[in-house]
Design a protein around this nucleic acid. Sequence first.
RNA 1: GCCGGGAUGGUGGAAUUGGUAUACACGCACGACUUAAAAUCGUGUACCGCAAGGUUUGAGGGUUCGAGUCCCUCUCCCGGCACCA
Length: 807
Amino acid sequence: MKYNPEKIERKWQRYWEAKKFYHTKNSPPAGGNYMLLTEFAYPSGNLHIGHWLAFSVPDILARYLKMNGKNVLYPTGFDAFGLPAENAAIQRNINPRDWTEENIKQMTKQLKSIGAMFDWSRAISTIDPEYYKWTQWMFLKMYEKGLAYREKTFVNWCPKDKTVLANEQVKDGYCDRCGTEVEQKELFQWMFKITDYADRLIDDLDKADYPETVRVAQRNWIGRSEGALLKFPIFNPKFSKGGQEYIEVFTTRADTLFGATYLVLAPEHPMVTKLTKDENLSAVSKYLEEVKNKTEMERLHIDKSKTGVNTGGYVLNPINNEKIPIWVADYVIGWYGTGAVMAVPAHDERDYEFAKKFDLPIKEVVKGGNIEKSAFTENGVLTNSDEFDRISSGEARKRIVEKLKEKGLADFKKNYKLHDWVLSRQRYWGVPIPMIRCGPPAGGCGYQPVPEKDLPVELPKLEDFKPTDDGRSPLAKAEGWVNVKCPKCGQEAKRETDTMDTFVDSSWYFLRYADPKNKKEFADKKKLKSWLPVPLYIGGAEHNTMHLLYSRFITKALYDLGCLDFSEPYLARRNHGVILDLTGQKMSKSKGNATDPDKEVSKYGADSVRMYLAFAGPYDQNIIWSAEGLVGIFRFLNRVWNFIGEPVEPKTADKEVDKILNKFTKEIGDDIKDLKFNTGVSGLMKLLNAIEDKWLTKKQYGTFLKLLAPFAPHIAEELWQTVLKNKKSIHLEKWPKYNEALLSDEPIELVIQINGVKREVLKITKGLSEEDVKRIVLDNENVKKHLAGKEIKKFIYIKDRLVNVVV
RNA sequence: GCCGGGAUGGUGGAAUUGGUAUACACGCACGACUUAAAAUCGUGUACCGCAAGGUUUGAGGGUUCGAGUCCCUCUCCCGGCACCA
């Protein structure tokens, strides 16, 4: 019979499903529980080849761990709310729910064709009210703790999607979802106080086994910098009546304070007009108007040359009371720090450029550079700084701040680039924010949380769910839903009509896998304890900042709320790459270069696709899809198919085969454990090459199939049950044990170098002493030839490996 | 600009972490089977050289008996951050 994957794969998938093989029990066996987490899928339409990479390759590890006695949970689910689904539904003029549910059905079918050991009994979907009830519950808990709040701020507004976006969802000034240029709007929004967790989010990165890229990306994103807050007294008769007023600035270079020759306010700074002298007012207003008309893009990227105007106002340098002019310039960012900086042109490139352009004084206070030519931004020794002269920058930073601190004019301060997480969206397809607004904007009870017993606040069915231009969610139109009684006073009130960012839904989904059907809690404490934190989380690098940061934050918040007894959700994280076409382009539907996995599966089978993806390269690197490479794997599986035949009697067992199997049992197992799936596959190939023309016993054939089973579960099962006539599934078998003694039994090849150049390879037994080896080596004809007439200076012997004779 | 990762045959990649560079595949070439092709099997395949031998891991230098691996300088590619004070 020929190898026909289409015939056997469906059959075994049904068999495994019928026998509930992968329905994980809660009680751990001796080996313990292990949740191997992969990122759940967004139901966008069809499964693409990237999903196969994300799910089929880690399945190799899941199966290996199961064979090694772990109670493995390989969960799956759908991250089903969100903008793309909603936009797609609008385009097709159908309801987002219908569209999403249809996709979930289709993708579930496709996911099953992978042959992964997903536990479908625990599958979750974020649009299930039984799930999002707990998303809302968590929001309320956060609200109680003051971690969720509503405030008017400048937010990113996508004019096409008609919703606000979190900072993380804006890429170079464009909407991450649709590519439209993002505008800044000042709106009331719901936010999570993620900034409260900035330090812990950085410091705890070292508590888990995260790849360096993740650590760096998150640290960059949070952007902690340590410096000081300095108060500059305002010198302006207009405002000094009735107590001194100050401009606060943040700086990491307090050591350069004596070099501050002017002060700059961001155009957004609330004090700008107040501080501007009457005769400068028209110039300043004009400038503010100009800046307002610039888009974020122009301000950040196109127009990098410095602009600004003098306000005519002054502050005093707190360290020496020098009078310093106040300027307004848009190179200072409104939201970062205090929106004002002390300008030290001698020691900051931006200030230098600005000072040159507007002819402001440049005063050197740190020695080491040439300020005639450029700003000197490194540390050095202070000069022109009174009592601080000849002190190093590092020391001066401390001392200057300490001195000012005594007068209440400074303090040490950490600053962050991280913003609070704007979580409200003015869109239909999301989890309703469980809040009720009582009374007019002023008066009434204000915002009141929906009582816990009323959860979930279900998303109503809407005929017209299209977004609006007025910054209001489409839910505002659902009058029957919006109008409720205030939970506090019982008066007429309205529901919050914004929905939550989908990243809230996906920030805690892995917790639900521990107890997906629980109606009383988001998960039972005991079950949480037995499954979490996640031992290993595998996913795409595109989630290294957003999703990973958010889920770490929510985990920490839940920990603080007493809901969890761990504060870091994952013990380890590994990234997988993306799939590229032969020209190195990223595969995508829109480019038309995407491989359709269904087609490949119907041609070569799921086993071939799985093994190809595992084989094509290291798992954390990008994979180049090669149709020819896939055929190579298919050929290999055909050879396997033809190899497993009628077993011989144990009496005639080939001992050599045992040795080979023993060696590869260790090698392949180690490879899987280390996520080196590519060399694991090559190990299987080497193994087959070594034993292909030998006759094996049933046990030996079985061992081979067990090594193959995690990679190609269908063909392994077929040959195991139908050719070898085993009654039970191969996927209930244990990973073969290898014999350490047998490994060291092997003769080894000793490399002989003369002056570092390989001259001879000798087969010797393991563990020989240096004297024995020396005798054997110097007796070798080839070695003698190369040594003739030369004096041996050194004889280096690396045990069981190599000899280097230096002459 | 700062930070991180990388560069190995015609291609994807391997290399026990300082010890045989190019495993395993793909591709290609030749051969076998075939009327023929496909499939399959066999042989070869880093480069120079008839050979002995020599050269080779982006470029150059260094440490070492020995470097793809460690150190320094540089080039290019990918990713994160970026007027963040």
